[in-house]
């Protein structure tokens, strides 16, 4: 009988399309960053679809923020790792 509502994944594709003009005016570097923004929103399309909130635009934004948070965590861990290595070097070697 078919679904009455479009899926969240369909919505996301449509929503991204609505930013076409914005995307077109961006400079090269920012353009790639912009694409990544939506790529990250898609990464959490499963959770957003399950949440099923009628306010889908907010779901998109939270998905993007979440991806940022993940990236921050990754970078924080990486910084800590590099700091440990740097400290190890400092401890072991002469000043």
């Amino acid at each position: 009988m078919g679904r009455t509502n479009p899926t969240y994944r369909d919505f996301l594709a449509d929503y991204e399309g609505r930013w076409r003009d914005y995307r077109r005016a961006l400079r090269h570097e920012a353009g790639a960053d912009f694409e990544r923004l939506f790529e990250r929103a898609r990464r959490h399309a499963d959770a957003a679809g399950y949440a099923n909130d009628p306010d889908r635009e907010t779901l998109v934004l939270v998905s993007m923020l979440l991806a940022h948070e993940t990236e921050l965590r990754r970078l924080r861990e990486r910084v800590a790792e590099l700091e440990r290595e740097a400290e190890g070097d400092t401890d072991g070697g002469p000043r």
């Binding site: 078919g2 679904r3 009455t4 509502n5 919505f11 909130d53 009628p54 306010d55 889908r56 635009e57």
Partner: peptide
């Protein structure tokens, strides 16, 4: 499929669904 709940809640406000009862025919 006209009864899309997203069309009814155009600004994402779930309250817009209040008071609406739907039955779909196929």
């Amino acid at each position: 499929g006209a009864a899309s709940t997203y069309a009814l809640t155009a600004d994402g406000d779930r309250h817009a669904l209040r008071g609406v009862r739907v039955a779909r025919a196929f």
